[in-house]
Write a protein that binds this DNA or RNA. Sequence first.
DNA 1: AACCGGGTCCCCCGCACGGGGGATTTCCGA
DNA 2: TCGGAAATCCCCCGTGCGGGGGACCCGGTT
Lengths: 218, 218
Amino acid sequence: MTLSVLVADDHAMLRSGMRAIFETQADLRCVGEVADGRAAVAEVARLRPDVAVLDIRMPKLDGLGATEQILADPGNRTKVLLLTTYDSDEYVYRALNAGASGFLLKSLPPEELISAVRVAARGDALIDPSVTQRLIARFAVSLAPPPTPPELALLTAREREVLQLVAAAHSNAEIAARLHVGDETVKTHVSRVLAKLGLRDRVHAVAYAHMNGLVRRS
Amino acid sequence: MTLSVLVADDHAMLRSGMRAIFETQADLRCVGEVADGRAAVAEVARLRPDVAVLDIRMPKLDGLGATEQILADPGNRTKVLLLTTYDSDEYVYRALNAGASGFLLKSLPPEELISAVRVAARGDALIDPSVTQRLIARFAVSLAPPPTPPELALLTAREREVLQLVAAAHSNAEIAARLHVGDETVKTHVSRVLAKLGLRDRVHAVAYAHMNGLVRRS
DNA sequence: AACCGGGTCCCCCGCACGGGGGATTTCCGA
DNA sequence: TCGGAAATCCCCCGTGCGGGGGACCCGGTT
């Protein structure tokens, strides 16, 4: 089973460089090259590759916008890897919020890029070490222990994970895409969460999550 | 410039395995092996290695506690890599909160472990891809957009009132009863609010209201 | 061996919801 | 005097959602 890859970057040289890298691997196939974000979105919808490697700086629509559009599609199965020269913080956060499977710097060695594609394809995620370092720092700060409601202990890890995504106003289909499971599964999890917490519907769940500090901000 | 490494794990076989892995590299030196967390803290203080690789499950003091003690020391220069068999979520958060430079699964290929040590030594951080995936889901939720919602000015007083009630997880029928109007009226208001704020449904409205301080928490 | 909990996927069904229209009154400012 | 905006109410229609079942697999426990 070979993995199909779409490459999006406005520099033709970089595109062919990546294509060359991928084609050293028997199980990777570069099925397309595009030079801007809008074309990336269109080609992902058409070719449905396993992984799309997007540059952040692109004409017409940048990599972040393209990522958001691609992953907003409930029927989407393509994982997105973002590639950038500079690791600006806002980029990282927006990318992660959109659900990208990876955030990598262009200084990445070729073999790591190959490895990243495989990681993304199997549903895992990967962040460049230098970015991870700052991410941890920020993450630690945003981990102020709020009075955790006791009934939360009733939930399984998966259920809590789903609740988090519900609280972020994601639809069942979006959650399914994000977690790489079927939407029926998500419905089951949501139902269990509602039953365990004694909530009527997802609207109550969102309010509950926000009022109990399950959603942190600033 | 060689990097010194301390290995802490209660399985002697795993310790010597790691030592063997590190000693295939000319620039890595395994300067110590310990079998429990308290010894790890002591040896880090004594040997001051560049990197300490700690198992999470250890006698006397687990890897998380050891990490916290090591990194709590202001004079510390040692980076901590945590290694575990199971990727329980609480472990991850606690580890990142303590400031670990890495959270890796024992299924990691040897060459990746070597690479992780080098990454940690230069001050960057690294998280196992399967863990990163869930970290992103959680992190996405903890991201809040702008503190300023200027589009709120677009709403009429009545619409803001309805939005407040929606944010409190009330159904259209409940809001209608509360405001002594028909439920069709409420539907009209809700639709206008969604349109003006560019929101998809009432779930987004609830999240929006909470994230923009429209709902005070106690 | 049997059991159980967690995770995954599937069906049917009812309904609240939200968009598309349109309609009426009131009230304020041009 | 004549808009026009705001608030109220109305109908149709599609669909996302949630309840209530059931099913399978897998990892532990008994």
